[in-house]
Amino acid sequence: MSTTRWPRYFILPVALIVLWQLWGMTLPARSRAPVPLDVLASAVELVASGRLPMAILQSLGRVGLGFLVAGAIALVLGLLMGFFRPVERNLDPIIESFRPVAPIALLPLAILWLGTGTPAAVFIVAYAAFFPMIVNTIAGVKGVERRLVQAAQTLGVPQLTILRTVVLPAALPSIFVGVRVAMGLAWMSIIAAELAVGSKGGGGGSGGVGEMMFVFYAYYIELDSIVVCMIAVGLVALAIDHGLRWLQRWLMPWAEQYR
């Protein structure tokens, strides 16, 4: 069925792009509205000059850093909270109170505390990535089959060793679901953070795709380049998700149900 349906997939996207281009050609020459061919030209220029790849790398670096910080804390806390009842009972109220705080809402505080550079952006990413990971880690640990833990306990294995050798591997698929959600959120919030730092930080540029988009909007009014950045943001999001799915299949071939 896939072979006969293939052509249909292209109808609407191609039609929309053609319409967009035709609409663009009716506009007066001075119009700044983005048009597909100009977007393409701008994409070639931005990629060839290396500005876009550099900006993406900078944003990805921040995402990676924030993600590592959040992941390390979430993994340790999540394992402890999932495994030891008292830890959960005392920490859960705090986690649950902070969970509804939108990461972007903390941005003004982050700017106040950490300035308009990389640390503020990393803070927002770490905050955004933390909650999906800890929630899924706790759920994963709680979903571990009791008998496995009991068997290890019967054999006299120390609690922390059980946590490392029994609970962690069994909870890994669920933890990974959290990682994927967290990565999606992290990439979204880095764009928001960089945009807002760009727009509210009083010009103190800090780089990254988000800031690049704001500069194109505010200083150069190059809408074609903004569209290029948007497409790039989308492509990176796709690449991150596919990369993580692939990693999941490779690391945990047994975990069919979580795909």
Partner: peptide, 11 residues
């Protein structure tokens, strides 16, 4: 879908 709403903000 992969283009987050936030990325639409400048445009």
């Amino acid at each position: 879908r992969p283009i987050s709403g936030i990325a639409w903000i400048p445009l």
